[in-house]
Design a binder for these strands. Structure first.
Lengths: 224, 224
DNA sequence: CGGATCATTGACCGAGCTCAATAGCTGTGG
DNA sequence: CCACAGCTATTGAGCTCGGTCAATGATCCG
């Protein structure tokens, strides 16, 4: 199973701090509270969205009837690109935290044939970013023991830490849907990490991470 | 865990029979034998590739040192788009079967600012397709019991059946890398499906599928 | 305060991993 | 052609992680 390939392909790229103002001139900003729906699966909206603040989850219901969170999208991420192609949204998009969005109408992008190429480049960049994150999700969050997957998830969430160093910690059943495990296992893992001092719960729905211990734990996990 | 949501979000869209000649005028065709590498992870190539025949796998080595197949790409799929953005390839691309490719140089796409919008649309379409497939992979192939995942994989492979109805069947350890299970479990599952008449092995590396029984088995699996 | 949702913990059990042995298949050289 | 080596696949036996079922705590409101 082990390989001697040297290059380290790291799943999660450093946070693409797109604090710079959105490039989509003409797009309209809007805000949503946590648990509000951005768009519904199967519905046909005329726009995709750039997330400027907060975290949005994309989820669907599998043929087995199980709710499954496909990926998380944060600031700088684009969701609902399928609308640009006049297709219904594939997944349900729901705000995990309070979020701020930038609504990008399809019409805006369609008038882009001869528009400045910077915009086109940006579009491609974001699109590819989504693809890579989706693939990183497969690679990191669906592989190995439950403990490993939870650690990986924490590492991902740490990238979205808010100003005072707190990270958003999903509800246990959401963790389950992300990592394909039961609520109980998710809870057990979180509790264990708390006892190990890796995690310090700050209810509601938040925690403080000990980055060093987290890194150590992940290294140990990968080693074992 | 079960939900009463009615809409069926099917993971795998019908095969995008892109038998039509590639839209990329100026791109150069090339052929590779099975197990040949299309591009290496970390290397910097000047082009992305459209697959016109065969199957290519995209894989990486996780931080745990485990080889993990991220997705499969077939005819009509675009791989290595990151080259368009002058970035090194994220994953290793290896031909699973003999493949035919269309090499699309970055320069070709860069001269696209004012080019016909049809090409731009096509690019976006493919990009989105890759994203969706990656997400479908997460949804279908990383969820649930080993048996379910193998069935899902077979359903996916069935979409790439060759002319005489045979499907390419990965080596057991490749199945393992795709579905995050051991070689032994993969072998056990395949053997079981063979005994159940869902699968008829046609070595080397091929099989014939009983679509009806496969569908039934998947339905049973989802029901249980 | 009472009810609802969410989280934690325990006891038990089974799917899948580990370790290990056997069997097919493929190619290579005598 | 056969014999052998090296890979690939299959199968078995035991053990463990995580799922299932169930009970108890927290937390959060109205």
């Amino acid at each position: 199973m082990r390989m001697n390939t040297a290059q380290a392909v790291n799943g999660f790229q450093p946070a693409t701090a797109s604090a710079a103002p959105p490039v989509w001139t003409g797009a309209v900003a809007l805000a949503l509270a946590a648990e509000q729906r951005v768009f519904a699966a199967g519905s046909t909206g005329g726009s995709c969205h750039e997330i400027t603040a907060g975290i949005v989850r994309l989820e669907r219901v599998t043929t087995a009837g199980q709710r499954r969170i496909i990926r998380l999208a944060g600031p700088g991420d684009l969701i609902g690109q399928e609308a640009l192609l006049q297709r219904p949204y594939t997944d349900e998009a729901v705000a995990c935290t309070d979020v701020q969005l930038c609504r990008i109408p399809r019409t805006l992008v369609q008038a882009l044939g001869q528009a400045e190429s910077a915009l086109l480049t940006e579009l491609m960049r974001r699109w590819q970013q989504a693809l890579e994150q989706s693939e990183a999700w497969v690679a990191d969050l669906t592989t190995g023991a439950a403990r490993r997957r939870v650690l990986k998830l924490l590492a991902l969430l740490a990238r979205h830490a808010d100003d005072d160093g707190q990270v958003w910690l999903p509800r246990r059943d959401d963790i389950g849907a992300m990592l394909d495990m039961t609520v109980e296992t998710a809870s057990r893992m979180v509790s264990r990490l708390r006892r190990e001092g890796i995690l310090d719960l700050q209810p509601p729905r938040h925690a403080r991470l000990d980055r060093a211990r987290l890194a150590t734990a992940m290294a140990n996990q990968d080693a074992g």
